[in-house]
Amino acid sequence: MNVKIKNLYKKFENKIAVNGINFNISENSTLGLLGPNGCGKTTTIGMILGLIKPSKGEIYIDGLDINKNDRIKLLEKINFASPYIELPKKLTVRQNLEIFARLYGVRDIENSIDQIANDLDLKKFIGKKTGELSSGQKNRVSLAKSLINEPKLLLLDEPTASLDPDIGDFIRGYLEKYKKNKNVTILLASHNMSEVERLCDEVIMMKNGSLVDEGTCNQLIKKHGRSNLEETFLKIARGK
């Protein structure tokens, strides 16, 4: 799926959250969405998912405007994971995955769950209640939920936030493999710059609701005369 964002603008009462941004994500590529807290990343993701109505501008996914065309049809091919939203805690991992598999119209539910449990190493705790899992396990379950429908567009909001380096690396490795094997377009919002360098083909930087820079990681590092993306991010975020 390709995504075209045209002059996207969102105002909440007196605050401009997103200020007329434009960007594209080409099919089967990964775009990093970077910026300091409160810069408008989550609002942008919310608008792409159709959860937030833009004040102005258009969002085209495979040429269809999510606010005008059949949002439900588009959502069947999209999914989202974030550590800030959770799955019902009293349900087991398998029950949660079954419910979302049904909601997304997955055909072979049992096999799909078994496959994803195998890939993400969920088998040991698939019968446990989701609320009883460690944050690393919960994160993998959340990722499994976001992949249950084999999305063509995957939105990830800090998928490895608060994870230990080992599990973080496991998830990054899995996402790399997944992208190689499946035709998937990814929008990744992250504060982990090494993760962005490893996973993203291109990045866009947001600040105060506006898009302030874009390019490949190497292009941005070179342009700002820094040695890595973290330093580049700090330079842009602090305006130095």
Partner: peptide, 18 residues
């Protein structure tokens, strides 16, 4: 309320359900 308490609200509203 269960959906709100369990923080599953967003998951529900981004799934393809009318």
């Amino acid at each position: 309320l269960e959906e709100i308490w369990s923080r599953n609200f967003t998951n529900l509203f981004i799934s393809p359900i009318k």
